[in-house]
Amino acid sequence: MDTTKMDSDSSTNVANSDEDNTAVHSQSSDATQGNGTLQDKANQRFEIPVNENIYGGMSKDELSEAREKELHLAQHDKAVEQAKDQKNALESYVYEMRNKLFNTYRSFASDMEREGISRSLQETEEWLYEDGDDETENAYTAKMQDLKKMVDPVENRYKDEEARAQATTDLLNSIVDHRMSMDSLPPEDRGLITDECNKAEQWLRERIQQQDSLPKNADPVLWSRDIKSRIEDLNSTCNQILRRKSSPANSDESSGLDQQE
């Protein structure tokens, strides 16, 4: 075999191998650079503008207007409900007073009062089902107040009759209690309490006589509040006298009198 030819073929193979390695290295380098570029693009951040207006949403002015409308509707609903409640209260008052006027309150109202109240109740009832069917709360309240101005005097006479009887009993009991509490007092103090009790008793007797002479449909000359005020005055005066008994000065004076005896 020709040695020269073998060396030539060997050199050629080495050269081809070097070229192949160079090509592979070049391709690998290109691939690495390509991957780096893709990675950079994947990690890149972009500034995306944000619009406050949502598609299909409302602007600030529209939102504010919507809230005002919602508040207005809520207030309207509340006013309607309050008007309805006041209307029902007025209607109930008409029915209740009509029944009491000719039953419970009958003796405490004059014929003229019953006639006037009855007429006003009827007019109010008709108004409720006609012009007043859909009115404001203030309108119903005004109607109620007008009726009460007529009914209250009659109702007060009725209520005070029972209250006056109870107050009379309370005053008489106070008189008895104060008379019983004065047994251990000096004669002068006993005399003072006796006078106060007698005056209260006489005042009550005279007022009751005047009251009994009046019909029930007349305003009382003796109200329960007058009797309660008299009880307070009597208790205040008598208790003040009783407190003097337990004061140090009176104790010393009583002790001195006992020693003299």
Rank of each mutant, 00 (worst) to 15 (best):
M180K: 15
P153Y: 00
A163D: 15
V176S: 12
T124R: 05
L172S: 13
H178V: 02
S174G: 07
Q202S: 09
H178P: 01
L121Q: 08
Y95I: 10
G132K: 02
D160A: 04
E123W: 07
E135L: 06
D183V: 11
T168P: 14
M144A: 11
T169P: 15
N156K: 15
R119D: 15
D183P: 03
L204F: 03
N173Y: 08
D195M: 06
Y93N: 08
T168N: 13
N138D: 15
D160M: 04
D131E: 12
S174R: 12
V94L: 00
L192D: 07
V176M: 08
D170A: 08
D189S: 14
M180D: 13
L204K: 14
D189E: 09
F102R: 04
K148P: 12
S107K: 04
L204W: 05
D195N: 08
A89L: 06
Y105C: 00
D131G: 15
Q202P: 00
M182A: 05
E126M: 14
E206A: 06
Q122G: 08
E126F: 05
P186M: 07
R98N: 12
Q210R: 07
Q211R: 10
M180W: 12
Q211C: 03
E115W: 05
M112D: 14
S181M: 05
L121Y: 01
P186V: 12
E91G: 14
E155H: 10
K159W: 13
L121V: 04
L192S: 08
E206K: 03
Q209V: 11
T168H: 10
R207Y: 07
S181V: 02
R98I: 02
V94K: 01
A139P: 02
H178K: 04
P186R: 01
D133Q: 09
E196A: 12
N173R: 09
D152V: 13
R114H: 05
N138V: 11
R157T: 02
K159L: 12
R190V: 00
P153S: 03
A165F: 06
M144D: 13
G132F: 00
F102H: 07
H178Y: 09
S174N: 11
S184F: 01
R179G: 09
R106A: 03
P187Q: 11
Y140F: 03
A163S: 15
K148E: 13
G132S: 05
K199T: 05
W127L: 02
D111L: 03
N99K: 15
K149S: 10
L171R: 05
D183T: 14
G191D: 13
Q122C: 06
G132D: 11
R179T: 03
